[in-house]
């Protein structure tokens, strides 16, 4: 494939959407899994985008939850990060950053140089700079969106199928919000659940964003 210039690539964003469809199918569910784990671990849901914007390295984010819950010293956090993400050093050696124009775009491209971004750029040697950045932005969008929607998908743990649900201790009990609403209302399905976690259940079921995001699953 010939290396085309920026002017020859007016559909960079649309092409990037097509390029990332395959990895998006992996990134989004992983993001969802991350969001579920984060919420189950006791973090508020909005930590998911904060994690994903500050770290943006999937495997490390999963590790981070455990590290933070154990109150790991920051020096150990730094060492763990170094060991887990050391592989990224090798990606930069052949990543076509010289094709990305502009300081801000270059900085973002380095920041968002994940396994997926490298793999996509390596598999398509002719990508223009603009398309590379668009590919990275799409990948991060899938991941962040997955993390945010994780709390919606956290609910149906009872619909288990092997290899699908996380094996958190919370799942084996009962999800507070599987009940669907406060006790005594038409939305309450399992009073046992609500009795166990009344505050949690009631609050989640009554949040506008919860109904808006998850009502179609009922």
């Amino acid at each position: 494939m010939a290396i085309s210039t920026e002017a020859e690539d007016p559909h960079a964003v649309r092409s990037a959407a097509a390029d990332t469809l395959g990895v998006g199918l992996g990134l989004y569910p992983l993001g969802v899994a991350f969001g579920v784990l984060l919420v189950q671990s006791g973090f508020d849901w909005w930590w998911a985008p904060v994690f994903s914007l500050l770290i943006y390295a999937g495997s490390l984010e999963f590790l981070a939850i455990g590290l933070f819950l154990a109150l790991t010293p920051l020096a150990s956090v730094a060492v763990t990060t170094f060991l887990v993400n050391f592989r990224h050093v090798f990606y930069g050696l052949s990543f076509p950053l010289h094709r990305v124009r502009g300081r801000a775009a270059k900085a973002y491209s380095v920041y968002a140089l994940t396994d997926e971004a490298y793999a996509l750029a390596a598999a398509r040697p002719g990508l223009t700079g603009r398309r590379i950045v668009a590919v990275q932005a799409f990948c991060q969008a899938y991941w962040v969106l997955g993390g945010v929607t994780g709390r919606c998908w956290a609910r149906p743990c009872r619909a288990t199928s092997a290899g699908w649900t996380s094996r958190s201790p919370h799942c084996s009990r009962c999800w507070p919000w599987t009940a669907g609403g406060p006790p005594g209302t038409s939305r309450a399905r399992s009073s046992r659940c609500c009795a166990r976690w009344p505050r949690c259940c009631w609050r989640r079921a009554n949040c506008w964003w919860w109904r808006w995001g998850c009502s179609w699953r009922r």
């Binding site: 770290i55 981070a64 993400n85 990224h88 050093v89 930069g92 140089l113």
Partner: peptide, 16 residues
């Protein structure tokens, strides 16, 4: 902790 991870990850990605 997040900022520590951010800094180390960015250093590793920018180093090459």
């Amino acid at each position: 902790g997040l900022l520590t991870m951010f800094a180390v990850t960015l250093l590793l990605r920018a180093a090459p």
